[in-house]
Amino acid sequence: MSVRQLTGPGTALLRRLREPAPPQPERCEFCDVHLPGEHRHLADRDERALVCVCPACALLFHQPGAAGGRYRGLSGRYLVDPEHQLDEPAWQALRIPVSTAFLFRDTALDRLVTLYPSPAGAAEAELDEAAWQTVLDGSRLAAELEPDTEALLLRRTAGRIDCYLVPIDVCYELVGRLRLCWHGFDGGAEARAELDGFFGRLSERARTPKAQVRP
């Protein structure tokens, strides 16, 4: 009796190559070093894009005005202001067509930009700058908001509107997550669960801004 093991390395290779290529690890866009899944980003003001960077390159751009101010490091702070809640009339005035949106000041365009998650990625909403200013006036979060690198992330659920100040890459991460699980017209149950989890983590992480000494 003889048992022969059938290995077939050639066939195994061809079968592996029938599968789509595995995703390539991301690289630092400045020095090309491989990056782990969790890594830092810089906001590219001119392209309105995020740039993946390694910690060393992120430090290079930490200096204000580096690269003519084109690339700016993200702050990494998460803020919430329990004293200043948006109410329903304010939300109506903003005319946001969806339940979740984020807003930031784009210095290249010199205006506020509102984006919201959609199955095709981040979609831009028409924005009434005057309405926004009215709503945001007196909001500590709006006063704290750094241009290009930070965003106000808003979500309207039954009876309440949450507003967080977050690094802008977090907003794009949310857009990416929702794209992966979006079904049908409004995203479906899976997308809502993803949103709930995401905002749950945000509420644990967010702090109240330090009280400012008023003159």
Partner: peptide, 23 residues
């Protein structure tokens, strides 16, 4: 025979992992 059988099985039935020739 053994080698030929292996070759043919690799071609027709690559999901097999082992073959035993009982004499």
């Amino acid at each position: 025979d053994g080698e030929r059988v292996e070759q043919l099985l690799a071609c027709f039935a690559p999901e097999l992992t082992a073959v035993e020739l009982a004499k």
